[in-house]
Design a protein around this nucleic acid. Sequence first.
DNA 1: AAACAACCGTACGGTACGGTCATTTTTCTT
DNA 2: AAGAAAAATGACCGTACCGTACGGTTGTTT
Lengths: 233, 233
Amino acid sequence: MTVPYGTMKFLQRAGFDLSLQNVENRTMLDQKVKLDKDARREAILDVASEIFYEEGFDAASMSSIAQRLGGSKGTLYNYFKSKEDLVEAFVQRHCAVHQSEIEGLLLADKGHYRDSLLSWGRKYARITTREKTQRNFRLITSIAERWPDVARLFYQAGPLKGAERMVEFLKKAEAAGEFKFDDVELATHQFIALCQNRHLKARFMNYGEPPSEAQIDAEVTSAVKVFYAAYGV
Amino acid sequence: MTVPYGTMKFLQRAGFDLSLQNVENRTMLDQKVKLDKDARREAILDVASEIFYEEGFDAASMSSIAQRLGGSKGTLYNYFKSKEDLVEAFVQRHCAVHQSEIEGLLLADKGHYRDSLLSWGRKYARITTREKTQRNFRLITSIAERWPDVARLFYQAGPLKGAERMVEFLKKAEAAGEFKFDDVELATHQFIALCQNRHLKARFMNYGEPPSEAQIDAEVTSAVKVFYAAYGV
DNA sequence: AAACAACCGTACGGTACGGTCATTTTTCTT
DNA sequence: AAGAAAAATGACCGTACCGTACGGTTGTTT
């Protein structure tokens, strides 16, 4: 009992190495079929994403997506109702991934404030200046005027979530006597600004090389220093 | 001796109120004709810009541009060789405008450092968070991957120019004993970051309302305060 | 008056698009 | 093995685009 030949062939054409095992009973088989349909859908999304990044949503065509996938255009419509449906799926997926990444950045419950800021700031700056995030950012904002809710969603999934998490952390730090803020939210955005603005902008507009780990470290080290000079007790 | 009727009619359709005066001699007439051709070209660019903002470069069509202009598609090709030529003209124009704006921000030669930073920071933040700049920003970055040089050009015209100007100012201020920097360039980018990052990002992704004058003032006032806390002597 | 320039509205060639569907191929069930 | 169901294909459709061409109109210049 194996994966359908057509499905296997389809996924291999798309560059997927699926070492799917045989399944013994019916419950697992049902589960299996479900996974395969999702896998096919994800495969299409992966390839579509790449073409969207390169050409933008409008100039990307269903034909070129199918071609790169190594399948037939008609098959795409088994998985997505329309090109617009594909674009929406792209947006949803990348908002979810971005949110998950930002929420996954850990901040200590208490103590080690300086180290926590350094660590968080570095990770945050790395995520936001990384090529993949930049590409998503460019795509999402390119439709900001046509689909304003989409861009807003992306902001809420990433930047807003990150800021909220930092606000909570800084409130606790202030209560513990580490800082003194007039406006903790403003201070939060200032810290984030110090960590990301320079490289974020430059990357966004293709200026210079991507920042090295050392460059990000230096940027965030100085950000923490400035932050303590301004708000440290 | 008046403007050609066809030109007048064309410009009126495009919403231009051109109260062009009669011209008495030939030199002025030659000058006049030159201006009119430019005016026509600018009129097309204005309308094309608006459609580019709304729909993006790819989805904007020459037909819709001509329609909104109230002219004929064929006439567009008297002024621009192709759609791509029109896009390039858009990019050049807005890089030039942006650069001109940034370079027009005055910084005192000496003295009044705090006031100068406040004044410059407010104006800079207003420019970069203003809807018009945001729209340009979105369009330029939407083609960053396809036309990497274009996005770089825009960065060099705006953000880089702004930072260079500020670096010069801060060097003088340091020499005058106002600040002490380990890295004047880093400090420059930190100041700019503190002034713009929060509202720039939010505007870019349609989150919340455009910042009021009061909000920008508050943001920049705090930025200067933080900056002095970190680097002031 | 004739020639020229600017512009319009219409039409066209060539290409490409998103989406559809009849047919073929593959898998599953009996 | 036969037949049904599912998956995939490739041809096709109607529409739209870019860029060009053309006949006609209007205004300007010679």
